[in-house]
């Protein structure tokens, strides 16, 4: 019971301080889940993000369900997910009435101009950490560079990259041996 309450509160806290969606949540997940609570590792986060890309729904929700399930079974998956969406529901519902006026205020726009810069830096920091765990040899470096080029220059669904990278991994690791 205490673990479930802890899951709900931890994910609610992360939902409340994440601006800009699933990717912006990664640095916060690394800190809370890997460093503080030890509910997962950096490698597992990379796995969940890859799977979250090719499974339906919002990535932050998918990652929350994975970590919750791993920590406290199926009910943990549900509780962690409800936790991560809880602040959104409360904040949007509260703001919905005054939201038009609020989002056109000059100082609010300026504040978000600053926050966006910070989100960039935080994603950069999170990628460095993930890079160190995921790119372990020349083959994984090749996969990284190919997918990066594809994601930047080609207009195709992430599902394609996920499937290709998974197949490439099996070929390189299992069949080539």
């Amino acid at each position: 019971m205490r673990l479930l309450a802890d899951l709900f509160l931890t994910f609610a806290k992360m939902g409340a301080v994440t601006f800009g969606g699933g990717y912006a949540m990664l640095p916060i997940l690394q800190r809370e889940i890997v460093d503080n609570k030890h509910w997962g590792t950096d490698e597992e986060l990379a796995d969940y993000y890859a799977l979250g890309q090719c499974t339906p729904g919002v990535i932050a929700v998918n990652v929350a369900t994975f970590i919750g399930r791993k920590t406290a079974g199926n009910i943990g998956g549900v509780i962690a997910t409800l936790g991560v969406v809880f602040p959104s529901v409360v904040i949007i519902t509260l703001l919905a009435g005054v939201i038009q006026a609020y989002s056109s205020l000059e100082w609010v726009k300026n504040a978000f101009g600053g926050i966006r810069v910070c989100v960039c830096v935080l994603i950069f920091n999170a990628v460095i950490k993930l890079f160190a765990k995921a790119i372990i040899d020349k083959k994984t470096l090749c996969i990284y560079l190919l997918v990066l080029a594809g994601a930047v220059f080609l207009n195709v669904s992430p599902v394609v990259f996920v499937i290709c990278a998974g197949v490439a991994g099996v070929i390189l690791k299992v069949i080539a041996k």
Partner: peptide, 9 residues
């Protein structure tokens, strides 16, 4: 294969 792809995306 998925981890470097995830980092790249």
């Amino acid at each position: 294969g998925l981890r470097p792809a995830s980092a790249a995306m």
